[in-house]
Amino acid sequence: MLKSKDLLGLRNVSAGEIGEILDTAELMKVVITSNNKKTPHLQGRSVVTVFYENSTRTRLSFELACKYMSGTASNISAPSSSVTKGETLIDTARTLDVMGTDVMILRHPMSGAPHLMARNVRASVINAGDGTNEHPTQALLDMYTMRSRLGGLKGLRVAIVGDVTHSRVARSNIYGLTTMGASVVVAGPPTLLPVEVESIGCEATSKVDDAVRGADVVMGLRIQLERQKKGLFPSVREYHKYFGLTEERLTLARPGALIMHPGPLNRGVEISTAVANSPASTIDEQVTNGVAVRMALLFLLTRQKNQMEAAS
């Protein structure tokens, strides 16, 4: 049973709750891989994706997850420039709320926006990425992938490599993995590592080789190429040379280590094509698992509501 009506991040989510989501996702994955992708779990329920940033895979993943379970999926998208003008986030959220929305899925360029939304609506809110804070469903699908490939999470050593400062994927994985008993090391240029990052429970290094050495999982993070113009690294060429995931560098990892990436990829920048396409790469599998994890989450949040409504 999830403790909150919302999933805003993994920072305060317990191992028991994460375990329940991952266990439920295993059942859901059976549905996705069958020829009859239809269950009644979300029948009569309304889900709206609210995206203030562009996204292909995350939004579609949520939409399919809803539809596979017979829920009503709708979406509204607004260019992020409209965040600063026109209707406020709270007004938009309340409008959706009074239309009978059961679950709102928010992607927003500013950290904490889902928290603001959740405080102001009756519906459940799922954070689909807020600013540079968290992207909890990505971390859940990453953990699901690691667990199904490697048999468990406890004791794993996971290296997260790239632009950690701006990565909501990194934060959610640090929180989720450390809660589940894995150890995390983050690596990247010093200009892209958050200050005092060790204080949130991981190791940190600017030498990618040191992070990759002996790792069970090596996760690359997308680097936004615009960051070079802002002075955060000198060139794409040098970035790939010192901080990219290359075949040579990956030989330092534990044999059989997984290569992960949340996508979309900058091939030849944070990850070489050879690495991304290697048998160790779980990039496609992560996408499949994303649908299963999101089905599980939608089911658990609405079931919890059903129970609360029945009790009251």
């Binding site: 920072r11 904490g112 600013g131 540079t132 804070n133 949130i200």
Partner: peptide
């Protein structure tokens, strides 16, 4: 900028 900005993912 410090532990809490990193923990909360805020600039």
């Amino acid at each position: 900028e410090g532990h809490w900005s990193t923990a909360l993912g805020m600039p």
